[in-house]
């Protein structure tokens, strides 16, 4: 009977230690199962959120870009480029880590949008403000997608560990414990029979 990393000594003391270890491993398995369930639940929730948000934002983006194409056609490239050349602002974002079952996922907070008021040409300002809004929405989608990727990776890892524990480690450890118990029982029985035999011999000699 081999369990990787454990040197087996079939003694009662070792058996007691092994049983304690099995308890710890089972507790770890229980906790990791809970983590897996929670991660699965979060992942499902994020996926649903992403589906809804993405559909809504893509519809809006399509409408905005369709309108922008019309505007570009009406105003011509000169006016659009004139407006665009002044839109070189900086959008400040802060990425904060939040923990989901010990897994760090990003939360993006837009600190300041690029300043476009006072700069955009009157004819194209409606487009520019809508495009800037869209930019904020795209940041939301990106945040969700990152969360999903990180949680999915962690879920995969946790799942592997839980499965390994459930199907390999715990059965092996329990098997080992059973083997040691049986060995100890056999040795006890052997000892008992040896003692009985010796007693019988001693009694026979006396008798």
């Amino acid at each position: 009977m081999a369990v990787v990393g454990i040197r087996v000594i079939p003694t009662k003391g070792f058996l007691l230690d092994l049983k304690k270890r099995i308890e710890v491993v089972k507790e770890g398995y229980r906790l990791l199962s809970m983590k897996r369930d929670e991660l699965t639940s979060k992942l499902t929730s994020f996926l649903e959120q992403l589906k809804a948000v993405r559909r809504e934002i893509m519809e809006r983006a399509e409408a905005i870009f369709l309108r922008f194409r019309r505007t570009y056609a009406v105003l011509g490239p000169d006016k659009i480029e004139a407006g665009a050349s002044l839109m070189r602002g900086i959008t400040e974002i802060d990425v904060l880590p939040i923990s989901i079952m010990g897994v760090l996922v990003p939360r993006v907070k837009v600190m300041e949008y690029a300043r476009v008021r006072d700069r955009c040409d009157p004819i194209v300002r409606e487009q520019i403000l809508k495009l800037r809004e869209l930019f904020g929405d795209l940041i939301k989608i990106t945040e969700l997608e990152m969360k999903i990727e990180i949680v999915a990776q962690e879920l995969e890892r946790t799942n592997r560990i839980v499965n390994a524990l459930e199907k390999i480690i715990i059965p092996e450890l329990e098997g080992l414990a059973k083997y040691i118990e049986e060995r100890i029982e056999e040795e006890d029985l052997e000892e008992f029979i040896r003692v009985k035999l010796i007693r019988d011999i001693i009694v026979a000699r006396r008798g």
Binding site: L66, R69, Y72, A73, G76
Partner: peptide, 15 residues
């Protein structure tokens, strides 16, 4: 000029 420019861009963008 404006109409031609608008038409051309609009046709390019499949409006």
């Amino acid at each position: 000029f404006r109409n031609l420019s608008m038409l051309t861009h609009a046709v390019q963008y499949n409006i």
